[in-house]
Design a protein around this nucleic acid. Structure first.
Length: 817
RNA sequence: GCGCGGGUGGCGAAAUGGCAGACGCGUACGCCUCAGAAGCGUAUGGGUAACCCCCAUGUGGGUUCAACUCCCACCCCGCGCACCA
């Protein structure tokens, strides 16, 4: 039998017509399994690197279906976003036209690979029946005070006249025109993710089936740190400066105070200073030094003394107040106490500006430290610290916090690295933020009944630094929902991560035009049982989704705290060592593969290429290998008719028994591989072993029809999640009615796993010297008697008496001399 | 700098305390063929004339009858975060 395209097409049509991947959600589903693959951004057609994601999801879904679960596998499109708009600017094609065209193409591709989805549930983020509800999500947060507007610094490119996302800033410049990016203050909408920092952190422990790596990344991103808030008075002023520190034990060594350029009280502080102009110039300079992560090492620390002094509440001494470029805006209070003796950054700064360095912590160890080592950053024992001298750092934290609290000038405090989520984009191709500004009533949310706020189609795409919506008068001008007077619409759109932060809920009721999702149905089907996607979403998408889900939980809209019970992150497929991309010209298109070898060969190779969570290098030769394997198993089908079932009642011969054992052990191992961490690569290699053994048995002419049939049937059943077209075809050739998906996943019989005999290794002092065939489960005494008579053993014993003999049943025996 | 992965043949890899290299690719030789392709078979970690033996899972130590696997130290690669006080 030859494998050709018509087989693919035949079964793809069959699955669609028989609605094998459609699932009703409105009734009780005891064995529900929500299998979700991250929906793609439809930017161009998919290559084999993308394919891995969908092939894995499909294999899991098919396997779970055969295990008797009711599997929901929906698909949709994360269809808003910058690339569509850039296409519009460059090629004068409307973002919607471009996007919908891509969606059509990708849909064809997915179908041609035999990926089964419930297409009745398709959602498209850029269409009003979806973004209406994204706007609704915004309003729910707004109602709860979790969406708010404030002035914030944003990355601004003068060249492109636009705001850039952090990811679009490369080495301090614009990724497109390399112009230096500056910080500009704009009024922006935020979601208050910080209100959920602790909950997002705490509930990571509920995510038992998430990769450790992703959990660690989220933990670090949230970045909780415990420390102390301490208030410094300013000499000759009423202003109080609040600092955050994790090392209050070093307070006696604080020799200056550092402020960031955006410290809230800074303008007031310098208001009456004679050198105000100078300071303002310095602030302006620092503000536009863009802090690109990669440049940290070479980043020159700079500061300016304000002329003012703060008072250290522990020592009563005056310490100078500096403004410094290394103090991060937006973290903690923006002001820190600086201890050069015990902080590397402060040390570097103090050296440069000749500020005093006072040692207040000594190492805990006896070992003397080199004299030259002025900097010591670990915890230790306090010295030069007044009444606290002699305490260990840990004890000092507590005592000093109590001291501060008693004097009402500080307390223990917690800080997070996590910032609020800036969702405003000065862009066209996104969901309009449903807010209206009225001169009389101020900020007014669009009433839910008025949703969606339609995105107008007819706009000019010019990079002006404003959303193109700013120039659409009929969009911008509206009436106030409260006073019916003249008002303006918000012209910014939402970050596309908002669209994707709740889509997994919408799949449950994708067509409902009354409500975003039906609570009962959602509670029945979620959390998602298996979420599959790229590790590049480990932080943003997965954190935002968790955040939105938690808000919904608190609002009583959903009954689960976490949206994704189990997460699998697949590795990238690379070519020539780098990520596939059009610009590098190393993209492998699936179409020619499908033409030449069929969809199943591509699927099988993608799954066989290596552990799915790891990066893998694409090699065309490897693909030929799996194509060859497919030819090999198809020939098994041809041979099927040649076998005569002469005597099916008679006992199996030795070779047949071996084959039966192999059938059962393969079922066991493949099932274990799939139940574990999706070890498709080893699952497939085990099936290859089974096929090799069938061939061997055939060559020896020892196989009769019934065991042969059983073996072939098992091969195709076990392969069916990976090579569904082929398995369906063979299943029907073998006389089964209906889809193989409706068949039950094979079960192994433990009684058939055990062999009668084993070849065990015979070792002397841990080195293999001989082999011995023994009956299964042979007793130690029997083995001991046999091994000492072996020629090789006698040779390596060199006449000595064995001290000990270790025997592991059916595995090995080790003679220790 | 901190955190998380990882380092095994010519290549993708397997083995999580019990015979290192399953399975596949590649390569070589053979069969089939007029010939080629496909297919089939055999071999394939290194040293070696040798399936006698020795060496071999990044490096060096340790635990154990037995270590790719566990422990300690170090080196290298990848990813994430990165002046978070």
């Amino acid at each position: 039998m030859d494998y050709n395209k018509s087989i693919d097409q035949k079964w793809q049509k069959y699955w669609l017509e028989n609605r094998l991947f459609n699932m009703a959600v409105d009734k009780d589903m005891p064995n529900k399994y929500y299998c979700l693959v991250m929906f793609p951004y439809p930017s161009s057609e998919l290559h084999v690197g993308h394919a891995r994601n969908y092939v894995i999801g499909d294999a899991v879904g098919r396997y779970k279906r055969m295990m008797g679960l009711n599997v929901l596998s929906p698909m949709g499109w994360d269809a808003f976003g910058l690339p569509a708009e850039n296409q519009a600017i460059k090629h004068k094609i409307h973002p919607e036209t471009w996007t919908l065209k891509n969606i059509k193409r990708i849909k064809e591709q997915l179908a041609s690979w035999g990926i089964g989805y419930d297409w009745d549930r398709e959602i498209t983020a850029c269409l009003p029946d979806y973004y209406r509800w994204t706007q609704w999500v915004f309003l729910q947060l707004y109602k709860k005070g979790l969406a708010y507007r404030k002035e914030a610094f944003v990355n601004w490119c003068e060249g492109c006249q636009t705001v850039l996302a952090n990811e679009q800033v490369v080495n301090g410049g614009c990724e497109r025109c390399q112009t230096k990016v500056i910080q500009r203050k704009l009024r922006q909408w935020f979601f208050k993710t910080t209100a959920y920092a602790q909950a997002l952190l705490d509930d990571i422990k509920l995510l038992e089936n998430w990769p450790e790596r992703v959990k660690t990344m989220q933990t670090n991103w949230i970045g909780r740190s415990e420390g102390t808030e301490i208030i410094f008075g300013v000499d000759g002023s009423d202003i109080k400066l609040k600092c955050f520190t994790t090392r209050i034990d070093t307070i006696f060594g604080a020799t200056f105070l550092g402020l960031s350029y955006d410290y809230s009280l800074l303008p007031e502080l310098i208001k009456n200073l004679p050198n105000k102009k100078e300071i303002e110039a310095f602030i302006e300079k620092v503000k536009n030094q863009s802090l690109s992560a990669k440049l940290v090492d070479s980043f020159e620390k700079e500061g300016m003394f304000t002329g003012l002094y703060a008072v250290n509440p522990f020592t009563g001494k005056k310490i100078p107040i500096w403004i410094a470029n290394y103090i991060l805006p937006g973290y903690g209070t923006g002001a820190i106490m600086c201890v050069p003796a015990h902080d590397g950054r402060d040390y570097e700064f103090a050296k440069k500006y000749n500020l005093p360095i006072i040692e207040v912590i000594k190492p805990n160890t006896e070992e003397p430290r080199a004299q030259s080592q002025e900097l010591f950053e670990d915890e230790g024992i306090l010295v030069n610290s007044g009444e606290f001298t002699g305490l260990a750092s840990r004890q000092a934290y507590e005592k000093m916090n109590v001291f501060l609290e008693q004097k009402n000038i500080g307390k223990a405090a917690v800080n997070f690295k996590l910032r609020d989520w800036l969702i405003s984009r000065q862009r066209y191709w996104g969901a309009p933020i449903p807010m209206i500004y009225c001169d009389k009533c101020g900020e007014v949310p669009v009433p839910e009944a008025d949703l969606p706020v339609h995105l107008p189609k007819n706009v000019e795409f010019l990079p002006t630094g404003q959303s193109p919506l700013t120039y659409v008068e009929e969009f911008k001008n509206t009436t106030c929902p409260k006073c019916k007077g003249k008002a303006r619409r918000e012209t910014d759109t939402m970050d596309t991560f908002v669209d994707s932060s709740w889509y997994y809920l919408r799949y449950i009721s994708p067509k409902n035009d009354k409500i975003a999702f039906v609570k009962e149905d959602v509670n029945r089907w979620l959390p998602v049982d298996q979420y599959i996607g790229g590790v590049e979403h480990a932080i943003l998408h997965l954190l935002y989704s968790r955040f939105i889900n938690k808000v919904f939980y608190d609002l009583g809209l959903v009954g689960f705290k976490e949206p994704f019970a189990k997460l699998f992150t697949q590795g990238m497929i690379v070519k020539d060592g780098t990520k596939m991309s059009k610009s590098r010209g190393n993209v492998v298109a699936p179409d020619y593969i499908i033409d030449k070898y069929g969809a199943d060969a591509m699927r099988l190779y993608i799954l066989f290429i290596g552990p799915p969570e790891k990066e893998a290098e694409w090699q065309d030769e490897g693909l030929q290998g799996t194509a060859r394997f497919i030819q090999r198993i198809m020939r098994l089908v041809d041979t099927l008719g040649e076998y005569r079932d002469s005597d099916k009642t008679s006992d199996l011969n030795a070779i047949e028994k071996d084959l039966r054992r192999k059938i059962h052990s393969t079922i066991k191992e493949v099932t274990d591989d799939l139940e574990g961490n999706f070890q498709f690569n080893t699952a497939i290699s085990r099936i290859m072993e089974l096929v090799n053994q069938i061939y061997k048995g055939m060559q020896e002419g020892a196989l009769r029809k019934s065991i042969y049939r059983q073996a072939v049937d098992t091969v195709f059943l076990l392969l069916s999640p990976f090579t569904p077209h082929l398995s369906e075809e063979v299943n029907s050739i073998m006389g089964n009615k209906g889809s193989i998906l409706k068949r039950v996943w094979p079960k192994y019989d433990p009684a058939y796993l055990q062999a009668d005999e084993f070849e065990i290794a015979v070792m002397v002092n841990g080195k293999v010297r001989d082999k011995l065939v023994v009956a299964s489960g042979a007793a130690q005494a029997e083995i001991e008697k046999k091994v000492v008579e072996l020629e090789k053993v006698i040779k390596f014993l060199e006449g000595k008496q064995p001290k000990k003999i270790i025997y592991i049943v059916n595995k090995m025996v080790n003679i220790v001399v």
